[in-house]
């Protein structure tokens, strides 16, 4: 049950755009939390408490979505009527997929102890660099309303984030013993 009709952008009084100033977003987030958080008002009935929990859950989700570039990109596309859950082969760049596979193999071949940490850190740096480039190209597409191209970039971003989290999982595994 949604406790509000606004979408995530509207909730924070922002225009529906990929370009979001995260600092001012966080300021508005804090204003809303101070006003509506379960701790902020003396809630007496169960219904009140439930509503407050539901609404602040919505605020938290909205904030988490908009502050993360990849989640914001996906959410922005859905507001433009695109289905970001489904992707067809021809929407993707084959070279990019190939490159991803090679990077994955590289990770798999690394030693299993913490001697692999510097190599993982290097890979991470590479992937982050690529992410930044793709992010700015998504922003360009979104601004010039080239949504098809933006959707392609979005899926590529998804691959890069997946790769990044795999690298981080690999790091984590090597930190535990």
């Amino acid at each position: 049950m949604q406790s509000i009709k606004k979408n995530f952008f509207e909730l924070f009084g922002l225009p529906i755009s990929f370009d979001v100033d995260v600092e001012s977003l966080s300021e508005k987030y804090h204003e809303l939390q101070k006003e509506f958080h379960p701790d902020a008002s003396s809630l007496e009935t169960e219904i009140e408490k439930m509503r407050s929990v539901q609404f602040t859950s919505f605020v938290n989700e909205a904030y988490n979505t908009l502050k993360s570039p990849i989640k914001r990109a996906g959410y922005f596309l859905t507001t433009q009527g695109f289905d970001t859950e489904n992707v067809s082969q021809n929407e993707l760049d084959m070279d990019l997929l190939l490159e991803q596979m090679q990077l994955r193999e590289k990770i798999a071949e690394l030693p299993k102890d913490d001697s692999a940490m510097p190599a993982l850190a290097n890979l991470k740096q590479d992937v982050k660099q690529k992410l930044l480039i793709q992010q700015s190209s998504f922003a360009d597409d979104a601004r010039s309303e080239k949504y098809k191209s933006a959707k392609k970039t979005f899926h590529e971003l998804q691959f890069l984030y997946k790769l990044l989290s795999e690298i981080e999982e690999n790091e984590e595994r090597r930190l535990e013993y």
Binding site: Q2, S3, I4, K28
Partner: peptide, 18 residues
């Protein structure tokens, strides 16, 4: 009344931010 409540919430969120 949840729809009505949601509309009111919309209104107050706008006011809170202003």
């Amino acid at each position: 009344t949840s729809d009505f409540a949601a509309s009111r919430m919309d209104r107050y969120v706008g006011q809170a931010l202003k």
